[in-house]
């Protein structure tokens, strides 16, 4: 594998993305809106009291962290992988002396930097206005960083294997839309997972989606502690390993199956 070529590609992609910042700022704005709506709805509903043990300030803190985590783990490149396979541009990438995964990683990293340039100042301003309540310990911060890293890996590879289904199915991108909806419901966007009603809560804990966005936030705000924290990490690591294995298996079969037309 050619890692230096990969790094050069990452740098080049980042520079070209910064030329089109306003477009990506708009995308980032769009992703920020759903958690922002539920931030307002839940903090208004909590008022002076508590809901499910959370005060108004704690809801604000939960959702502000979620906005940043969601943008950091959202793998928008998964959408383009399917396009590359469908329209045959993948054949060019296959000729490069490195894995096409680098190409996706380059876009992914470039995107994260551009989105953070937008999301962090906005979240900081919102934090000044809305006065979140957050008590941090060093342990929570360390656990949060590990959970965040795993969440990114999981969301990236989970979306990637879904996108690779484009080798066999023409409209595999609708599965990504389904994934986004499940993340909205089960990954702590519509409500912190602890507040979901019966069946939804059980599904949220068992399925991989909570571990792509909501779980790191719960770790930082201290909602996931003790046994919850340990089982959470175990499930997160398990699902991440499963996603990577699915990616490897589908990639090997898919590339052999792949035939591009023209060129």
């Amino acid at each position: 594998m050619n890692h230096r070529g990969g790094l050069a590609l990452i740098e080049q992609t980042w520079l070209s993305w910064m030329q089109h910042r306003s477009f990506f700022f708009l995308l980032a704005f769009g992703w920020m809106v759903p958690p922002l709506i539920y931030l307002f709805v839940w903090s208004t509903a909590a008022g002076g009291g508590t809901i499910g043990g959370l005060t108004r300030g704690e809801f604000v803190a939960y959702y502000l962290v979620l906005i940043v985590v969601n943008q950091l783990t959202y793998a928008q490149t998964n959408w383009t992988v399917g396009d590359l396979i469908r329209d045959g541009r993948l054949s060019k990438l296959l000729l490069y002396p490195m894995s096409p995964l680098y190409n996706t990683l380059a876009t992914e990293l470039a995107g994260k930097v551009v989105y953070m340039i937008f999301a962090i100042p906005i979240t900081a301003i919102l934090a000044l206005v809305l006065r979140p309540e957050l008590h941090l310990s060093a342990g929570q911060v360390i656990a949060f960083i590990s959970a965040l890293g795993l969440a990114w890996l999981l969301r990236f590879f989970w979306g990637y294997w879904l996108a690779l289904l484009a080798f066999w199915i023409t409209r595999a991108d609708s599965l990504l839309a389904l994934q986004d909806a499940l993340i909205f419901l089960l990954a702590g966007q519509v409500a912190p997972v602890a507040l979901l009603p019966g069946v939804l809560k059980t599904a949220a804990i068992a399925l991989p989606f909570r571990y792509m966005a909501g779980f790191p936030v719960e770790v930082l705000t201290g909602q996931a502690a003790g046994v919850d924290l340990v089982t959470g990490f175990a499930l997160q690591i398990g699902w991440t390993a499963a996603a990577i294995m699915l990616y490897l298996a589908l990639w090997r079969r898919g590339v052999r199956h792949f035939t591009a037309i023209g060129g």
């Binding site: 509903a45 409500a191 939804l200």
Partner: peptide, 16 residues
Amino acid sequence: TGLLGVIVLFGQIDAV
């Protein structure tokens, strides 16, 4: 998602 959003919210509270 729209409908479940409202159901989840009012599973916790009666009115806002």
